[in-house]
Structures are given as structure tokens and as C-alpha cells.
Write a protein that binds this DNA or RNA. Structure first.
Length: 852
RNA sequence: GCGGGUGUGGUGGAAUGGUAGACACAGGCGACUUAAAAUCGCCAGGGGUAUCCCGUGCGGGUUCGAGCCCCGCCACCCGCACCA
């Protein structure tokens, strides 16, 4: 074997795999199937280390499962619609379509050298008309099933650019491009009825055993099921039509501590009042400038204004509460109106303190005095408290019991009803943008909103659009929207809204099972390949993408596009961490920060400088981002060290769910290690066939141990531990003096164990050492359980919990015997110094603790 | 603000409630070399003359025993419905 030169071997093996069709997914009735999927990338044009890590993880699983005898599906595609393409068109000219397909070609070219075991024959982009046409067909089916509807909803409106802004484009309440103060504006928009499935989406989380607990928790909290009381306050001095104010509360037990009623600035009553009251109009307008994101609303300073209207307390008609408009009350949750109980809600407490509203405790900590509160008292609902202004008498009970009693009382008295509500809102999918899937409906003057005929699909995006004017290019296209009504044939106008790109990514996993079909899915293929056995992606998708996908799979099942078993499409989920890197910063002559690429930096023990010697500030690691320039281009790593080194590095060290910091020395170390394995392979290859060594038994044992560790590591998504095991095994093998066949067997096993991570070098070693066929297709090695157990164990001896000595005993020695040996130990005797032993704990095979 | 998570040597990290620091990086020493690089071998949490003491973000608690469990903080990261 010559020198280790990745650039020589990597393309060669990729071509070999390709020609042999090793990664082509086939429906094979004789084999169990395994579908591994990584979240598909947005085609930004350059792959980054995060991609390398994400796709290598999936590749390790795919290659491993394939070796274990599964028929594997491991596809790749492109999440290709979205705003960056339109932004690029606006900023640099060009067309979103050309930009996107150009980026896809570039990124595919960067991904292929990684040697991923992907079935490229199934590749598609969501902006392919073949894909989004099928999406339109499903939209129409879902319309028929009543899963789609239209209603008014608020958007961020930029009055200068005359366009709707995404939340991320609203910075401090201003449009990112125009700098104009953003307004909230109502538009009629399309929605999916995800709220209809809220209960199922919540309950089914329990069945997702192989999802991270944290993701299930986040989804459960997001869906937000609550039990509470809905009731109407009778109003005093309210405008006509507002004689009642409907309120929802999860804490009806605190009704006797109410000190005000509050409504959202978007509440119909607020909208009515602003018509006639300029002060209220000004206040509400101020509130609406915050934008539409919940984060912005809740982090803004709490502001309120007394409307002058009052409501009567439902239990005491003589008790009147003022009605305030408050900027932190969300119109989307409950009824958009609340009552405030400052004593038991932190936010209400601050609000009441600020505006001088009364604060009266409803319950106290058991044993506490009813004194004026200096802060809100907010115990867990499960905690027992002493009620002093209980709705049905004063006694100690838990908050949960108090709530149940309050609901029962309200129902008995007839002023309110116990209701179950969800926080989850319907999924608004309308986007007033060009580069998305057109919503396939037609607006007809006589027939109203009519779905396009299926035979007319796809409703394709026109190519001849311009981005030099504000607004939606589809809306101002001279001819595109003009069409005939599918129902009556009269002249009609197409919907110019396109779909949220989350729709595109909510079913791509299903499309991969039959990517070229003339229907969204094909029953036999979906039946064979679904569900995704292992889904891998970033934690940032824990809620929206995954929840929308779960909804969409259900909707596809109800419209006949997926089998019932696929209603939960992802059997197992793994969320990986980010790739981070330190940031290098200098300042320009005006003091503005200037960032530098890692490749332009020289590091030394004292710090970092540019190549011209300028001292650079080093900022601790953060997520790689273009704006901070703390990016490492995988292509450079592959060019210098090869794909196997890049793959090895991103899998080693950091546990996959955690962030990994990219360091140049780490990459170099990975390369050195692979070179060492290569050289070791050469040396073993040159051993005389009849060489006899003394380490046969030890090496066989070490080999079995490595097989066991790596198998467990990959199965448990602990790739870093698998790699640590491979390092340890390599160290043993490098020092071993065993007979030639045992040595060869060991290095072939090493190659196999490495091959999911570093498939190219593994293939070279495998073929050099006489492995049969391709390493990529060889059966995964099994460890002989007999070789995994040690005959003797070393037991530490603690005295009062501190380690003082250790003994070596046969592994299955009786506890009483171990105890005797331990107490007779020289060091133990010395430490005890004659003190009486109170207790001795022997944990077989682990530890002995002597308590004195 | 709300929801979720993370925190261990100089660095990345390992550790079913049972020897804290596996494996690796950086570092030190040695071998080889005219020399260097590469490679190979050894050392290595901190303190201390010591067989000792201290150590898993901070403060408490449970336990024979806590990095791990519980309570209260701090810092950072992810999400918050039109970024993908």
C-alpha cells in the first residue's frame, strides 16, 4: 500500500459504489426496510459544516443499517422555495428560479464528494412543478374535506415598500429595508384547520417513544391544552352591542381577587372604542406598532389604558371592575379578554402596581397571615393553599381543587361554563410572495372561491416577473391571474397568494417514497417505505416543522394519500447540535466591527493576528454564520484532507445532540489518525503469512470489545463514543504482536467498524486485506459474548464515601467473601485504625463502601 | 416575557446514583535525525515535602455514596406561529 491520499481513493470508491448501484433503494419483500432521513437543506448555494454533520450522521445510520441487512431508503432533496431567492433577485438582479436551481447544482456538486450513501435517483426540489403540482392537488382534496378555510388575520405591513413583512424582517418595529414604522393590517388569508386535530396531536405524543422527551414537552406546551372557565361580564357604559364581555380564565378560583378586566388592543370592543375616542385610538395605534410576533408583544413594556367602561362582578352586581386595554393581552388566545387578579399573577401584579389597582389575596400559603402582598403569590396548582376569599367558602385545598370547585359553582349559578381550550392556532399559510407554491383556487364573481380543476394542475408560476417594484409580483403580473372560472367558465381571477414554505416541507418525506409518481404518493410504495424510521435534524425545528408535518400526515391520511400507520410519520427523531467556531474581530477606523475568516487568521499561544500582524479579538464560539464570518468551508477541508477526515471529525468528540466546535487542530488530528490507520494496515499487510505472536487471545478480546462498543455507540446515537472505542482499538492493534491471521482479521474488522464514518478508507483497507466484495455491502460484525466478560474485577473500597483502596477479585465472588477480603486489606485496616465498622455496603462488581 | 435545554481539566468531552476526567486536542519530556518536520514512547485536574487536601457554574438538601436526584439562583443556547 502506498501513502494515504484521499484524493486518489475517494473518487474511485464513489464511482465503484455508483456503478454497482449500492445505494439505490429497492422495495425488497425479503428484507426489513429502514428509512433514514435528514431534514433536507435550503439551497443557499454553499454547504456548511452543519450540513456535513447532519448528513454524515444520517449516513452513518444508513450504512450501518444496510450492513445489518436492512433495505435502506436514504434520499436527498431541496427545500427550494422561500424568501432568500426573492431577496437575492431584489438585491442583485436575476431570477429566483435561476438562482435556486443554480444553487442546487452547486450544492449537489459539493455534497457528492462527501461519499454519502444517498439514492440520488430520488432527488427533487420543492420548486419543481412536478412536486408543487401534487401539493396543489392535495390542497384541493383538503379543501373538500373541510381542512382548509379563509379568514381575516393580521400581518406586518410596510407602508413604504407596500409589502407584508416576515417577523424577522421587522426590527424594533420597523421594516428592515425601508426603515418605515410597521403597521398591523388585516388581510383575508388561507388557513389549515390544525386546531381540529389539537387533541390528537397532543395525545399521540405519548406514543412517540423514540422522540426526545424535550421535543414532546415543547410540542405539548405549544399545543397548550387548558381547562378553564368561560363567562360573560355584564358591562356598564359600553357601546351598543357590547353589553357582555366574554372572558376565559384558567384560574376561576381567583375570581374574588379580580381587580380589573382587560382586553386586547385587537379586541372588537377596542376597535369600536377607537372609532369615537381619539385617546384610545392613539393608544391602540401605539400598541399595534409593536408588530405581530408574540415575543415582541410580551417583551414590550406593559402598557394599559382605562376605557372608562366597567363590568359587574358575576357574584356581586354591586361590585364593578374597570375595563382596561392592555398591550400584553393576546387576541389569539382565549377570547382576547381577561380578568386580572394581581395577587396571584406576576404580570397582573406589575400592571396593578403601575396603575394603582387594588391587590387582594384569594389564598395564602398554609399558616400565613392575610397581609398586604409585596409580590404576586403564584404557587403550583398542585400545592395546597389556604383560601381566604375562596369562591365557595374558605378552606385549605389545592389550586386544582379550587379551580374545579369554581367551575362547578359557575355552572350551578349559570354565569359561566367549564371549557377546554388549546393554545394552538390554525395554521395560516397565505404568503403575499412570488417564490412559493401558488394556492390553486380561482375567485369568480358569481361562484365565489372555486378550486382549480385537477387536470389544470400544476398552476405554474410565471417566469416573466420583475422585482424592481414593491408588492407581490404575481399580483401585478399583466396576464397570469386572468383565467376562466372552473365552475361557470366566466372570466375570473386566480388567487395570487402562495403557500408558506412549511407546507412544502410537511410532506416531502412521503414524496421520497415515490418521487416521480403522477399522484402525490403511490399506495404500495408508501405502504412499504413509511414511516421514516429515523429522522435527523436541528432542534430549531422542534415545534413548527415537526408539528406541521404531523398535521399534514394526518390530513394526507384523511384524503387518501397516506396509510393510517403514517399519521405519525417519524418513528424516531434525533435533534443534533450546531457546528460552532470562534469569531475573529477587528475594527475599522470608525470603530465599526470587521469580521475575519478563520483561514485568514494566524493563531499563537498569545493570541491571534491577521497575516499582516494586526492583532485580532477572539470571541468565544458561536453558531457559524456568514455575517460573523466564523465559517469553515467544508470544500476546503475536503480539498486538504479528504471527505473521510471531515466526516470523522464531525462525528468525533462532541455528542451529536450537542454543539460541536470546529477547530483546525481537530481536523488535522482526524487526518493524522486516518493516516496512522492506513500505515498500520500497510504494516499488517507486510507481515509474513506464518508469523506467530503472543497476543492472539488479547487481540481477539479487544476486537470483540471494539465491535461491541461501536455497535452500541451507533445504535445509541453516541457516535463520539463509537469513535473513542475505535481510537482505543487502534491503539491496542498498533501495539499488538499477534499471529498474522488474527492481525488481518482485526484490521478488517476495524475497517468495517470505521466504514459508516469513513467509508472510503475502510473500503481501501478492506480490499487490500482480502475482504470479500465491497466493505459497504459486508455484513456487520458480531461480537462473541464470551469474549466480552472479564474474569476478575477491580473493586474500589471507600471509607465513608471516599476512595481509599482497591482490590482485585474474581467477578462472581460472593458478597460476604468480598467483604472479608476488603476488611482484611492493609490500607483499609490502616484507615479504620480500629474504629468499629457501622455498616458495609458491597455492590457486586462495582464498589465497596465501609461506613464507620 | 413565556416554553425548552445546556454548564465537568488549558480545550472537545467520558462516567446504569458507585474509582470523576475514558478517548482525543493543545502542552511537557524522551527516542529517531547533522537538524527540523513526520513518526514512535512516556507524563499530565489543581495544590502540597507528605500515605494528605481541594475539585463537575453558584448556594442549600436527600443518600452509606451525588457530575447524575430534589429546591433556589446565575450564565449561555434554541423556539415563540410570515426565516428556513
Amino acid at each position: 500500500m502506498s501513502r494515504y491520499e484521499p484524493s486518489q481513493i475517494e473518487p474511485k470508491w464513489q464511482e465503484t459504489w455508483d456503478k454497482a448501484g449500492v445505494f439505490t433503494a429497492r422495495r425488497d419483500a425479503a428484507k426489513p426496510k429502514y428509512y433514514v432521513l435528514e431534514m433536507f437543506p435550503y439551497p443557499s448555494g454553499r454547504i456548511h459544516m452543519g450540513h456535513v454533520r447532519n448528513y454524515t450522521m444520517g449516513d452513518v445510520v444508513a450504512r450501518y443499517k444496510s450492513s445489518c441487512g436492512f433495505s435502506v431508503l436514504h434520499p436527498m432533496g431541496w427545500d427550494a422555495f422561500g424568501m432568500p431567492a426573492e431577496n437575492a433577485a431584489m438585491e442583485r438582479g436575476g431570477h429566483p428560479k435561476d438562482w435556486t436551481y443554480g444553487n442546487i447544482a452547486d450544492m449537489r456538486g459539493q455534497m457528492k464528494p462527501l461519499g454519502l450513501s444517498i439514492d440520488w435517483s430520488r432527488e427533487f426540489a420543492t420548486c419543481d412543478p412536478e412536486y408543487y403540482g401534487q401539493q396543489q392537488a392535495m390542497f384541493i382534496d383538503m379543501m373538500e374535506k373541510g381542512l382548509v378555510y379563509r379568514k381575516a388575520a393580521v400581518v406586518n405591513w410596510d407602508p413604504v415598500d407596500m409589502t407584508v413583512l416576515a417577523n424577522e424582517q421587522v426590527i424594533d418595529g420597523k421594516g428592515w429595508r425601508s426603515g418605515a414604522v410597521v403597521e398591523r393590517r388585516e388581510l383575508t388569508q388561507w388557513f389549515f384547520k390544525i386546531s381540529d386535530m389539537a387533541g390528537d396531536l397532543l395525545d399521540s405524543l405519548d406514543g412517540l417513544k423514540d422522540w426526545p422527551e424535550k421535543v414532546r414537552l415543547m410540542q405539548a406546551n405549544w399545543i397548550g391544552k387548558s381547562r378553564g372557565l368561560q363567562f360573560g361580564f355584564e358591562t356598564v357604559a359600553a357601546p351598543a352591542g357590547f353589553d357582555r364581555l366574554e372572558v376565559y380564565t384558567t384560574r376561576p378560583d381567583t375570581l374574588m381577587g379580580a381587580s380589573f378586566a382587560g382586553i386586547s388592543p385587537d379586541h372588537p370592543l377596542a376597535k369600536e372604542l377607537e372609532k369615537t375616542n381619539p385617546q384610545i385610538a392613539a393608544f391602540v395605534a401605539e400598541c399595534r406598532r409593536i408588530g405581530t410576533s408574540e415575543e415582541a408583544l410580551q417583551t414590550a413594556e406593559k402598557l394599559g389604558m382605562d376605557t372608562g367602561i366597567r363590568v359587574k362582578h358575576p357574584l356581586d352586581p354591586n361590585w364593578e371592575l374597570p375595563v382596561w386595554i392592555a398591550n400584553f393581552i393576546l387576541m389569539d388566545y382565549g377570547t382576547g379578554a381577561i380578568f386580572g387578579c394581581p395577587a396571584h399573577d406576576q404580570r397582573d401584579f406589575e400592571f396593578a402596581t403601575k396603575y394603582g389597582l387594588p391587590i387582594k389575596a384569594v389564598y395564602l400559603a398554609e399558616g400565613a397571615e392575610d397581609a398586604p402582598l409585596t409580590d404576586a403569590f403564584v404557587p403550583m396548582k398542585s400545592e395546597r393553599v389556604q383560601y381566604v376569599r375562596g369562591i365557595a367558602g374558605n378552606k385549605p385545598m389545592t389550586g386544582d381543587e379550587g379551580v374545579a370547585e369554581a367551575i362547578a359553582l359557575a355552572e350551578a349559578k349559570g354565569f359561566g361554563q367549564g371549557v377546554t381550550k388549546f393554545r394552538l392556532r390554525d395554521w395560516g399559510i397565505s404568503r403575499q410572495r412570488y417564490w412559493g407554491c401558488p394556492i390553486p383556487v380561482v375567485h369568480c364573481a358569481t361562484c365565489g372561491v372555486v378550486p382549480e380543476k385537477k387536470e389544470n394542475l400544476p398552476v405554474e408560476l410565471p417566469y416573466d416577473v420583475s422585482f424592481d417594484k414593491p408588492g407581490n409580483p404575481l399580483d401585478r403580473h399583466p396576464t397570469w391571474a386572468a383565467t376562466a372560472c372552473p365552475k361557470c367558465g366566466a372570466a375570473a381571477r386566480r388567487e395570487t397568494d402562495t403557500m408558506d414554505t412549511f407546507v412544502d416541507s410537511s410532506w416531502y418525506y412521503a414524496r421520497f417514497t415515490a418521487p416521480r409518481a403522477a399522484t402525490p404518493t403511490v399506495a404500495e410504495d408508501a405502504e412499504y417505505w413509511m414511516n421514516v424510521d429515523q429522522y435527523i435534524g436541528g432542534i430549531e425545528h422542534a415545534i413548527l416543522h415537526l408539528l406541521y408535518s404531523r398535521f399534514f400526515a394526518r390530513a394526507m391520511n384523511e384524503t387518501g394519500h397516506l396509510p393510517a400507520k403514517a399519521r405519525e410519520p417519524f418513528n424516531a427523531l434525533f435533534t443534533q447540535g450546531m457546528v460552532t467556531h470562534e469569531i475573529y474581530k477587528t475594527s475599522d477606523d470608525k470603530g465599526r466591527p470587521v469580521y475575519h475568516l478563520p483561514e485568514d487568521i494566524l493563531r499563537s499561544e498569545t493570541g491571534a493576528t491577521l497575516k499582516d500582524g494586526t492583532v485580532v479579538e477572539v470571541i468565544p464560539s458561536a453558531k457559524m454564520s456568514k455575517s460573523k464570518k466564523n465559517v469553515v468551508d467544508p470544500m476546503n477541508i475536503i480539498a486538504s484532507y479528504g471527505a473521510d477526515t471531515a466526516r470523522w471529525f464531525v462525528m468525533s468528540d462532541s455528542p451529536p445532540e450537542r454543539d460541536v466546535e470546529w477547530t483546525a487542530s481537530g481536523a488535522e488530528a482526524a487526518f493524522k489518525h486516518l493516516t496512522r490507520v492506513w500505515n498500520l494496515c500497510s504494516r499488517i499487510g507486510e507481515l509474513p503469512a506464518d508469523h506467530q505472536g503472543k497476543d492472539d487471545a488479547a487481540l481477539l478480546k479487544a476486537t470483540a470489545k471494539a465491535v461491541d462498543e461501536v455497535t452500541k455507540g451507533i445504535d445509541g446515537f453516541a457516535f463520539n463514543k463509537a469513535i473513542a472505542g475505535l481510537y482505543a482499538f487502534t491503539n491496542v492493534l498498533a501495539k499488538a504482536d499477534a499471529s498474522t491471521p488474527v492481525m488481518k482479521q482485526a484490521i478488517r474488522t476495524l475497517a468495517q467498524l470505521m466504514s459508516p464514518m469513513t467509508p472510503h478508507i475502510a473500503e481501501s483497507i478492506w480490499s487490500y486485506q482480502g475482504g470479500a466484495g465491497l466493505c459497504a455491502q459486508a455484513a456487520w460484525p458480531k461480537a462473541d459474548p464470551a469474549l466480552l466478560v472479564d474474569d476478575t474485577v477491580t473493586l474500589p473500597i471507600q471509607i465513608n464515601g471516599k476512595r481509599r483502596a482497591e482490590i482485585s477479585v474474581p467477578k462472581d465472588m460472593a458478597a460476604a467473601e468480598v467483604e472479608k477480603i476488603a476488611l482484611a486489606n492493609e490500607d483499609v485496616v490502616k484507615f479504620l485504625a480500629g474504629q468499629p465498622v457501622k455498616k458495609i455496603i458491597v455492590v457486586p462488581g462495582r464498589i465497596i463502601n465501609v461506613v464507620v
